[in-house]
């Protein structure tokens, strides 16, 4: 199958009911700017993944696994739910899910911002490496497992073993935390943290008072910690 990377007209709608996933993703990747819709995702995997330019993409419906994975520079909004691994390995840009996200949202993401309007299930932010994640609802068990850098803000509750085997990442939770994972402890919420959280919430479009959150982080006893890496 040859994939013609033709230039899309402005505000083009790409219909996954009529085009193959590869055609849709290739067409989006060929653009350097513009606003585009993806229609009828129907739970398909890897929708709008691998984008590498400041395009704005609106996925109109529920997406499957790895939606907007490896995103760089682009702004992708999923108007619905996302399956496993949304925005996994994102480098920069913005990925927004208006509904719920399944497990491993933002896994290993290095940068950019992931905003989930509803709940995220287990292992949200697993092995995150610099991404900012804001979850309007609650997160499931083992969220921020082995997180290395970045920040996770949860407006609802967190499931069991939050921040298990955490390296460095800042975890902010407004609601209840079922339990903390190994080497994760509650830490003092200082002005710099309130400022960081206020900035994240504002950019995520979430209306919440930063002073209502508690902060969790690494006790730095589980790994060979070098203080020079602290931030």
């Amino acid at each position: 199958m040859s994939i013609a990377a033709q230039t899309l007209r402005p505000n083009a709608a790409l219909d996954l009911g009529a085009m193959s996933l590869r055609e849709v993703n290739a067409a989006l990747k060929a653009e350097s700017e513009g606003v585009f819709d993806v229609l009828n995702p129907g739970g398909a995997h890897a929708v709008a993944c691998g984008l590498n330019a400041p395009v704005e993409v609106h996925v109109r419906g529920h997406a499957g696994y790895y939606a907007a994975g490896m995103n760089r520079l682009a702004s992708v909004t999923i108007h619905g739910n996302a399956g496993t691994g949304v925005a996994e390995n994102m480098m920069s840009g913005l990925v927004r899910v208006t509904g719920d996200a399944s497990q491993s949202a933002g896994a290993t993401a290095h940068g950019g911002m992931l905003v989930i309007g509803g709940d995220a299930s287990a292992r949200c932010g697993i092995s995150m490496k610099g991404v900012e994640i804001v979850v309007g609802g609650s997160v499931g068990h083992m969220s921020a497992f082995m997180a290395q850098a970045g920040a996770l803000a949860v407006l609802g509750d967190a499931g069991e073993a939050l921040g298990d085997s955490l390296y460095e990442a800042r975890l902010y939770v407004r609601g209840a935390v079922a339990s903390l994972g190994a080497d994760c402890i509650e830490k003092e919420m200082r002005d710099e943290h309130r400022a960081q959280l206020a900035d994240m919430l504002a950019r995520a479009g979430m209306d919440a008072d930063p002073s209502a959150f508690r902060r969790y982080g690494s006790a730095r006893k589980l790994y060979n910690f070098k203080i020079d890496n602290a931030y």
Binding site: G42, G64, S102, Q103
Partner: peptide, 27 residues
């Protein structure tokens, strides 16, 4: 309790569905 294996559920007035992935429910 670990929930590694995926599942999604959906309910309308007419039916309840469960599947490993949403794409099975989408139609």
């Amino acid at each position: 309790p670990i929930a590694c294996k995926p599942a999604v559920m959906a309910e309308t007035d007419g039916w309840v569905a469960m599947a490993s992935e949403f794409r099975a429910i989408a139609k």
